[in-house]
Simulated scan of single mutants.
Amino acid sequence: MDINLDLAGRRVLVFGEPRRARRVLARYLAAGATVYLATTPVDGRTPDRPHPEVRPVEYPHFPHGWRDLVSAVDLVVLVDVSRAIDGIVSDACATARVWLSRERAAAVAPLGQVSLVGGGPGDVGLLTLAARRALRDADVVYYDRLGPTDRLADWCPGAELIDVGKTPGHHAVPQAEIERMLVASARDGHTVVRLKGGDPFVFGRGGEEVIACRGAGIPVTVIPGVSSAISVPAAAGIPVTHRDVSRIFTVLSGHAPLSDTELAHLVGLDGTIVVLMGIGTLPHLAAGLARHGMTAGMPVAIIEQGYSTRQRTTITSLHEVAAVAGALGARSPAVLVIGEVVRLAQQDDTAAVELMRSAAELADLG
């Protein structure tokens, strides 16, 4: 059962080993509580606190001291304590009529791990359950600008959040440095999440980060995400395949111009073409496809800010798309769809916007 409590200003007493209780402590600190940590001394000294804001508390020396200790707080939390301590604290809380909770301990290991997490196209409703679990368990999150980031503080309270996002033509943190940071954080024993927009392995450079982690001996897993290559056209009512219209689709990066050979192959496939990051090279792409035989009237969709309440879909033809994009001031993030399936698109984005609002409301309820 999930119970939402306003813990701002409340006193919370946590029993548990500091490192194993680190996420629990961070979560209550992020909720605005005054947090105390009671833990067994090791070799006559109190273990180091994982957070400087946490206030240390000594174990009671007398039986009645347990009741007095829990009576001074509003909530008691047990994190992987011994059966004996569990029984003593439970009895004391029952006598003092103080709320008691048992929470899962964080993993403790000399070496941490990295999870590459796909965040989808940006709408929180498309973030998978596996992604939410990874964020919940994270000590450090390295995130991109296109991922769902507005509620990161809620999803992973107490985690260190580091923006390593790139914008077109500007990489504030080079890829090699991102890989170094992931490895360094894991070597410090942290559970690390690399949160990306879309899917980590669809033009997300996830493969490079997996190789870097494996090369350094860091355990790494990949949690797939909903790719904008399929979800954004869908939000505009465009299926990338459709019976008797298109039985093949190709996803390509428009980050750099395609060669003549690549352009000729695309035209020869006679299927749907989905272009990510393609606004900057759109004139070259349109001219190249036409030069290799694609008809001037082939429909093209430009979907900006896809799967958001700011979504704008513009439908035009291959012959006119470059001029139309320039006149509209089309900007990234945008997805281009080229092919006969574009004729199946919605005439406007009203239904898509309503879908986004509904998804956001459901996510808030969850």
Rank of each mutant, 00 (worst) to 15 (best):
residue 267 V to I: 05
residue 297 G to A: 14
residue 280 G to L: 11
residue 88 I to H: 02
residue 363 A to V: 11
residue 119 G to S: 08
residue 297 G to L: 05
residue 48 D to E: 15
residue 27 R to N: 11
residue 211 I to N: 00
residue 300 V to P: 11
residue 309 T to G: 04
residue 30 A to S: 13
residue 149 T to Q: 10
residue 280 G to K: 13
residue 208 E to P: 05
residue 275 V to E: 02
residue 230 I to L: 15
residue 359 A to E: 09
residue 165 G to C: 02
residue 224 P to I: 10
residue 273 I to F: 10
residue 196 K to M: 11
residue 341 V to Q: 12
residue 31 A to I: 09
residue 227 S to H: 06
residue 125 G to I: 07
residue 79 V to H: 00
residue 214 R to E: 14
residue 114 V to S: 08
residue 55 R to E: 05
residue 75 L to T: 06
residue 321 V to I: 11
residue 270 D to C: 06
residue 15 F to A: 00
residue 92 A to Y: 04
residue 214 R to I: 10
residue 127 L to D: 13
residue 41 P to Y: 03
residue 336 L to C: 02
residue 313 T to R: 06
residue 235 A to D: 07
residue 25 L to W: 01
residue 325 A to H: 01
residue 332 S to F: 06
residue 4 N to Y: 03
residue 212 A to D: 04
residue 346 Q to C: 13
residue 252 L to V: 15
residue 72 A to H: 08
residue 318 L to A: 10
residue 102 R to H: 15
residue 209 E to L: 00
residue 32 G to C: 06
residue 341 V to T: 13
residue 201 F to E: 06
residue 127 L to M: 13
residue 208 E to S: 05
residue 233 P to C: 06
residue 88 I to S: 02
residue 28 Y to E: 10
residue 326 G to W: 02
residue 189 G to E: 09
residue 211 I to V: 12
residue 79 V to G: 02
residue 220 V to R: 12
residue 60 P to S: 11
residue 112 G to H: 00
residue 179 E to P: 00
residue 278 G to W: 04
residue 304 E to T: 14
residue 350 T to F: 03
residue 328 L to I: 01
residue 243 R to V: 01
residue 5 L to P: 03
residue 224 P to C: 06
residue 22 R to A: 12
residue 250 T to D: 04
residue 192 V to K: 05
residue 12 V to F: 00
residue 118 G to W: 12
residue 12 V to M: 02
residue 313 T to C: 09
residue 299 P to C: 03
residue 317 S to K: 01
residue 322 A to R: 09
residue 329 G to K: 08
residue 17 E to P: 01
residue 359 A to M: 15
residue 325 A to V: 12
residue 76 V to G: 03
